[in-house]
Simulated assay, not measured.
Amino acid sequence: MHQSTGSRDAATAFPLPDLADDAAERRQANRAIAWGAAGLAVTGLVELVIALSSGSVGLLGDALHNLSDVSTSALVFVGFAVSKRVASERYPYGYERAEDLAGIGVALVIWASAALAAVESIRKLIDHGTTTHAVWGVVGAAVGILGNQVVARYKLIVGMRINSGTLVADAKHSWLDALSSAGALLGLVGVLLGASWADPVAGLAVTLFICHVGWEVTADVLHRLMDGVDADVITTAEATASDVDGVRHAHARARWTGRTLRVEMEGWVDADTTTAQADAIGRAVAARLARALPDMRSFTWSARAV
Rank of each mutant, 00 (worst) to 15 (best):
H2Y: 11
T5D: 13
R8M: 12
A10Y: 10
T12C: 15
P15G: 11
L16C: 08
P17A: 12
A24I: 03
R27G: 08
A29S: 00
R31I: 08
G39C: 08
L48K: 03
V49T: 13
V49R: 09
L52K: 03
G55F: 08
S56A: 07
V57S: 02
L60I: 01
D62T: 11
L64M: 12
N66A: 11
V70G: 11
T72N: 06
V76C: 09
V78G: 01
V82R: 10
R85M: 09
A87Q: 13
S88L: 01
Y91C: 06
P92E: 07
P92D: 09
Y93L: 15
E96C: 01
R97G: 13
D100M: 03
L101C: 07
I104L: 15
A107W: 05
W111H: 12
W111Q: 09
A112Y: 03
E120I: 03
R123K: 14
L125I: 08
H128A: 15
T131H: 02
H133M: 12
W136G: 15
G137A: 09
G140F: 06
A141G: 08
V143R: 07
N148K: 04
Q149D: 00
A152E: 01
R153D: 02
Y154G: 00
K155A: 05
V168R: 12
V168C: 02
A169M: 04
A171M: 00
L179K: 09
S181F: 10
A184M: 05
G190C: 03
V191Y: 10
L193M: 14
G194F: 08
S196T: 14
D199N: 07
P200Y: 02
T207F: 04
T207Y: 06
H212R: 13
H212T: 10
A219Y: 12
A219P: 01
D220S: 12
V221A: 05
L222S: 11
L222N: 09
M226V: 13
I234V: 14
E238Q: 14
A239Q: 13
S242C: 10
R248H: 09
T257K: 13
T260K: 15
R262D: 15
R262P: 02
R262N: 10
E266M: 11
A271E: 14
T273Y: 00
T273D: 00
A280N: 06
A284C: 07
V285F: 08
A287D: 15
R288D: 10
L289F: 01
L289W: 01
R291F: 02
R291K: 14
M296N: 07
A303C: 11
